[in-house]
Amino acid sequence: MSNILVNAPKTARRGAVIEIKALIMHPMETGFRPGPNGRIIPRNIIERFTATWNGAEIFAMDMSPAIAANPFVSFFAEAKESGTVVLRWTGDEGFVAEQRVDIAVE
């Protein structure tokens, strides 16, 4: 279970450009830091973030070890039709998190 906070409008006018903001709890361990025992802590980052609107991809980004813990992503999308936006984070150690947001387009 992941902790996620999403800020997206519940309704939008057709054709309007809306901003979707998402914050997720994740350590984003770089893989370069030694732990208390002197050994390198294995890398554990989110590798990819995608957003789909009714199944069609509207935004995607690759993440790198330089991105801070608990990454915050903000992007814009054109509101074409009512539907579900699915935000998906995937990463090291089999990390998968998903959050669905319903947006009504009028």
């Binding site: 996620i4 914050l23 608990n70």
Partner: peptide, 13 residues
């Protein structure tokens, strides 16, 4: 902003 404040993730947890 409660959806931009990373502390709110921990409040949720």
């Amino acid at each position: 902003d409660d959806t931009a404040n990373p502390g709110m993730l921990f409040v949720q947890l």
